[in-house]
Structure formats: structure tokens, C-alpha cells
């Protein structure tokens, strides 16, 4: 069980870290993809969704940089230098920013652990079904009172006779 949980957590962490930008996209970025990955500083939406003057100016700057042959990382770094890290639509995977990437998966893994533990506890607290014909309480009910049991036996014996 613990091993399975560890595997799930590891897989989620790998998912968070995985899927880096494709090399082709890194070397030859398009304006459209950078518009989705950068934020307009005044309107706090992605460039793709903004028509503000600064968004237009940023698009023009990105276009010039693409034509000059800059890579995606270089263009993003230039934008961060001008406007700070808040210009990135997704926080970079470094330092404190890791928290933003891992917290959702951590939350999911934590919830899975809690649900598993609660389910195990609930299953353990249920009374185990007793084996058939094992005397009093054989049907899962409470054992019969000995006086009552003796009386039932007497009645059955009289009935048989």
C-alpha cells in the first residue's frame, strides 16, 4: 500500500516536471505561442487576450526578436528583465516557485493518503462476519440469552415428539 502510494506521488511529481518545451519551439518560437506564455502587465491577462497599448508594444518587440533569431528562453528572459517575473503566465520552475507547481499535486497525494487511511480504518471497525454454525450469534446477531436458548430447545424437542 505504502509502496503504491509512493509510486503515485512520484508519478505526479514527474508529470509536473515533465513536458518541457519541444526543442523546435525553443529554437524557433512563434508569436502565437509566446502570446500565450506571456502576460500583459497592465491587464494581467495573456498577451493573446489583450489589446492594450503595452500588449501591442510587447508583440512588436517579440516579433523583432523572433526575426533577429532569438530563442524562446532569450525572449522570455528579455521580457522578465523589463517587467519582472510576473510577466510569465506560468511561474518558472525554480526556487520558491516550485511550490506553485507541486502544491496541487501534493494536495491530491495528501487527499489520497487521507482517503486511503480513512477507508482502512472504516473497514477495520466493521464486525467480521462469523462462520456459519458457530453457535450463538451465528447469523451475525447478538448471542441468545442461555435461559431463552434452553426454552427454545425444550419447545423444539416437544415439537419433534
Amino acid at each position: 500500500m505504502t509502496r503504491a502510494l509512493a509510486l503515485v506521488v512520484a508519478a505526479l511529481a514527474v508529470l509536473a516536471v515533465a513536458a518541457p518545451a519541444a526543442p523546435a519551439s525553443e529554437q524557433s518560437p512563434t508569436l502565437a505561442e509566446l502570446e500565450r506564455e506571456l502576460v500583459c502587465p497592465t491587464c494581467e491577462t495573456t498577451l493573446a487576450m489583450s489589446n492594450s497599448p503595452i500588449a501591442d508594444r510587447m508583440r512588436a518587440d517579440i516579433r523583432e526578436r523572433i526575426e533577429a533569431g532569438q530563442t524562446k528562453s532569450e525572449i522570455k528572459a528579455a521580457m522578465v528583465e523589463q517587467f519582472g517575473e510576473a510577466v510569465l503566465a506560468a511561474p518558472p520552475r525554480s526556487g520558491f516557485n516550485w511550490l506553485a507547481w507541486l502544491l496541487p499535486f501534493g494536495g491530491l497525494a495528501g487527499a489520497a493518503v487521507v482517503v486511503t487511511l480513512l477507508a482502512r480504518r472504516w473497514l477495520r471497525s466493521r464486525p467480521a462476519p462469523a462462520a456459519a454454525g458457530s453457535g450463538p450469534g451465528a447469523n451475525g446477531g447478538p448471542p441468545l440469552d442461555p435461559v431463552l436458548e434452553r426454552r427454545v430447545d425444550e419447545e423444539l424437542a416437544r415439537f419433534d415428539a
Binding site: 502587465p41 497592465t42 528583465e81 523589463q82 517587467f83 519582472g84 517575473e85
Partner: peptide, 11 residues
């Protein structure tokens, strides 16, 4: 000619 500071991120 008056003093000007720059606040790129707008902090």
C-alpha cells in the same frame, strides 16, 4: 529634466 525612476514590474 526632472528626476525619473523606472519600475518595470510596477511593484
Amino acid at each position: 529634466t526632472y528626476p525619473i525612476v523606472h519600475d518595470g514590474p510596477g511593484s
